[in-house]
């Protein structure tokens, strides 16, 4: 367990020199490692060396960006968000390294087709197809190729940062690209007379 510190003390100690800073770094390192170990222990794809590497990277980042800590949470909580982000990014990169955007979106030049829903009644089936045909038309008419590729990759489960990496972009830009795509589709569906409730009941 690390020495109890309030935020002010953490900041002072982490920015100090010599033994005081070394002790604070050791304490923070221990806190982050315990937290990551507990939250990742159930995963089979993570070992202790990986977690120690992530904590080390997080410490480097935290020490270089202490001025970004605004004091709206405990410093240890803020530091944990950074360590978790780094660890999750590394895991996603590893998990998706063999998957290309082209492979995932091989048929993305075509608007999607709807598989038959065996559980739907004939009337519901007709409604599903009508709604889906409207969506297909809107995808063709309202989305750019880039938006459709990103949307398809996202539907395929690819994390945004992996989509961004393959597009030579960043997560925020991809999020905005997808947000704009969803807005266009939403406006089109609303113009065609569909509401959120229609969607829910059609596919219930």
């Amino acid at each position: 367990m690390c020495t109890p510190r309030d935020n002010e003390t953490w900041l002072r100690d982490l920015q100090a020199c010599g033994r005081v800073q070394a002790e604070a770094i050791t304490d923070l390192r221990g806190f982050l490692l315990r937290g990551l170990t507990r939250s990742f222990q159930a995963r089979g794809d993570v070992d202790q060396a990986f977690l120690e590497d992530m904590v080390q990277q997080a410490l480097v980042h935290i020490l270089a960006h202490l001025e970004q800590f605004q004091g709206r949470s405990r410093l240890t909580t803020w530091a944990t968000t950074i360590a978790v982000r780094l660890a999750m990014s590394a895991l996603r990169r590893k998990q998706w390294q063999e998957v290309s955007l082209e492979g995932l979106t091989a048929e993305s030049e075509l608007a999607p087709a709807l598989a038959l829903d065996d559980t739907a009644s004939p009337a519901q089936h007709t409604e599903q197809h009508a709604l889906f045909e409207t969506l297909r038309r809107l995808i063709d008419e309202a989305l750019t190729d880039k938006q459709w590729v990103a949307l398809t990759a996202e539907l395929g489960g690819m994390p945004l940062e992996e989509i961004a990496r393959r597009m030579g972009s960043n997560v925020n830009a991809v999020y905005k690209l997808l947000h704009d795509a969803r807005q266009r589709l939403k406006r089109g569906l609303e113009t065609a007379g569909y509401t959120a409730e229609d969607v829910r009941s059609t596919f219930a």
């Binding site: 048929e107 999607p112 709807l114 598989a115 599903q128 969506l135 539907l155 569906l189 509401t195 969607v199």
Partner: peptide, 21 residues
């Protein structure tokens, strides 16, 4: 690509839940 009904539902619900900001 072919979407399963649950994927289509998820996409459509996501679209309809979109906020301006």
């Amino acid at each position: 690509m072919t979407l399963r009904p649950e994927q289509a539902k998820a996409l459509l619900e996501r679209v309809m839940a979109t906020r301006d900001q």
